[in-house]
């Protein structure tokens, strides 16, 4: 019954990748806000590099003479050019799809089918910034991102890439029942629970979500199933959420000796 629903793609900003080894996993796709911050960081870095070279050029010009100042202003323009057209590609190739700004925000560029970024594609997506930037401030790029389910700007579409989030996450914590079930409470439950695997799974999922729910909502959700279980086992249902916790405790205690 739940099967067809499970196969549907969730309406979410994740992209499913299937690797050549048939491993499937999901990447959260990076939205405009994060990418704008990363872009600003990269802009600041580029500006800082240019500023440092500019100061050196200026000092050189004052100290030695016009010939040097012209030489260095030529150099400065070349550096500006490199920063403008190659900065992103150089970093993305060296750091596997990341620039310093992207790294700071845990972003990475990968191809849409999950393969790592190729040099040509990186070059292409960054050249297309010239089109995405039009008419000013990445307006075209933002509109394209808003229209696309994977937040791709035009450059990403041409190069077949997307930007994903690789934030480190923590392992889910172990489940604790608070306060711990007393032997008296447990003794009221039957030794063998007349519950299917799916039902036990649902109970566990509910208990893990409990922390994030308000008390009223918690009670409401628990009350949808607890009375059914209680009547099946012929016990009294005083506190629905507590009953579910106890059922889970009994189920895992029965499993443990194995």
């Amino acid at each position: 019954m739940a099967e067809p629903a499970r196969r549907l793609q969730p309406i979410d900003t994740t992209a499913e990748i299937e690797t050549p080894e048939h491993v499937r996993f999901h990447y959260p796709v990076a939205g405009p806000a994060r990418r704008v911050v990363a872009w600003v960081l990269d802009l600041l870095i580029r500006g800082a590099v240019l500023l440092v070279f500019g100061i050196f050029a200026l000092m050189g010009g004052f100290a030695i003479g016009d010939a040097v100042s012209e030489l260095s202003s030529g150099l400065l323009l070349v550096i500006y050019f490199l920063l403008e057209w190659l900065y992103y590609t150089l970093w993305e190739v060296a750091w596997n799809g990341r620039t310093p700004g992207k790294r700071a925000l845990d972003l990475r560029v990968v191809s849409v089918d999950g393969h790592p970024l190729r040099i040509g594609d990186s070059f292409l997506r960054n050249l297309l910034r010239a089109a995405d930037f039009l008419p000013f401030g990445y307006t075209v790029g933002l509109v394209a991102m808003a229209r696309d389910s994977r937040f791709r700007r035009l450059g990403d579409m041409v190069a077949g890439t997307m930007v994903i989030v690789e934030e480190r996450r923590a392992v889910a914590s172990t489940l604790r029942i608070n306060p711990p079930p007393t032997p008296k409470e447990l003794s009221s439950l039957p030794q063998r629970l007349p519950l299917s695997g799916d039902e036990l799974e649902a109970i566990e999922l509910f208990l893990r979500r409990k922390e994030g729910l308000g008390p009223a909502r918690e009670e409401e959700l628990a009350a949808m199933v607890a009375p059914i279980f209680a009547s099946r086992m012929g016990i009294r249902n005083k506190d629905s959420a507590r009953l579910l916790a106890l059922l889970h405790a009994r189920a895992s205690e029965r499993r443990r000796p194995l």
């Binding site: 996993f25 596997n96 790592p116 392992v171």
Partner: peptide
């Protein structure tokens, strides 16, 4: 949340294993 953690770890391991060209 556990699935998200593993998805994330798999993604990062995949990026590391298959580095950019």
């Amino acid at each position: 949340d556990l699935v998200a953690y593993l998805d994330n770890l798999a993604g990062r391991a995949h990026s590391a294993l298959y580095g950019a060209e």
